[in-house]
Design a protein around this nucleic acid. Sequence first.
DNA 1: TAGATCATGTGGTCCAACCACATCAAGTAG
DNA 2: CTACTTGATGTGGTTGGACCACATGATCTA
Lengths: 230, 230
Amino acid sequence: MRTHELVLHWIEKQLSDGQLLLGGRLPAERALAEQLQVSRTSVREAIRILEAMGVVRAGVGSGKDAGTVVIAEPASALGSALRLHVATQHLPVADIVETRALLESWAVARAKPDTPALAEAARLLEEMDAHAAVDDFLGLDVRFHVALAEAAGNAVVSTMMGSLREAIEGYAAALTANLPDWETTAARLRAEHRAILQAVNDGDGERAAELVAAHIHGFYREAGLGQAPD
Amino acid sequence: MRTHELVLHWIEKQLSDGQLLLGGRLPAERALAEQLQVSRTSVREAIRILEAMGVVRAGVGSGKDAGTVVIAEPASALGSALRLHVATQHLPVADIVETRALLESWAVARAKPDTPALAEAARLLEEMDAHAAVDDFLGLDVRFHVALAEAAGNAVVSTMMGSLREAIEGYAAALTANLPDWETTAARLRAEHRAILQAVNDGDGERAAELVAAHIHGFYREAGLGQAPD
DNA sequence: TAGATCATGTGGTCCAACCACATCAAGTAG
DNA sequence: CTACTTGATGTGGTTGGACCACATGATCTA
């Protein structure tokens, strides 16, 4: 077993034993190296991996933001990994879109009306009305859809939804170049968003699921999924 | 931007530009360090991250298995990340089970009969008849379910299915201690597996989806999901 | 009292050296 | 000529030490 894996397993055990909690700090790199009788390099490689997985965050200096702190951000971590595999063409973008539609349909079908997540989703819709620029709009769009997914109360589903969306965010932005008129599309997306949210708040999960699936597939079909942007 | 991130982005660009293909080799660590004008340490940290994401594999020595080679194993990589987040109790096991049931139901409902993946699934069932030990059985069980999921032809769904199953494999093994009699449960699981595969091969996706959801939830309910094993 | 300065501790980076390993080529004994 | 041994080469794995940038808090000073 390689040395950094030993460090990795030690830290994972600390986590699963509850000796290292969310928000807690790892020992300083030099201290941990001495404690485990390995080099600081090996400790650092282990921390790099945990950082890539969204389990810790490393900060220099001293005080609140300093040191290596345990966090819980699986979505961005999984998103990066998926993006790389999309880059190697091992995971087709079409499959990602299809999976995202599957997860999100399930989520909105089971979303509870009048939850904080839905209130946040409604707020994001207001904000989207004021931001017409493609990048701003898409950024808010991601947050709206993730908020929707969170309303179902399944952390794994919303995490995966977010990571899938993030993995192809750059791709989606590039696809907008294929659209005949962004303003027209944006107006349609806004209307669809409101209809989806309305259905969820009405407790009509079945209709919400249909609308969200049509919403997702509609955008990628219009933008020409699989075609290179001009 | 930190130095290892620079290396990471350089490699990601090589991948998305198609200059680095599946099975291809990265430049040697020392050569890459000189080429990018960074230290070997930073190159190594980048490679560690890619390795954790299942994008490359590092091998010592010379010849076929040597060097850093581009691979495509997202399932095990995502599985490790999910397992760590389960360890921090940020992702509940129940949510993982529910998500897995969702993905797998969808997959079997769309699985095409008479595909190579289903033939492999059938072969695995034969093998499971001969392996009664818990660990062997569960290992084959994972492969059976992944083979089933592959028959739907969506790489992202089967990848996520596999990673979810892997993330809680240790948990599932521990849960078997809660079962009153493993042999009885194993016999039931074998029968359910055959019924699922039969439904898929009959083209009855709807029935297959119902069976697989009942199969998954049934096991975890019987084993006492959420309860500590004795 | 208010500001400047220094000490401390953190992660970030780099370097030089050595190890373990696998392969291949050259040399050597048969 | 064959078969084995030996050494050279190139790979990632590991280590210790040095220095940097940064943020904070204590201390000194005007």
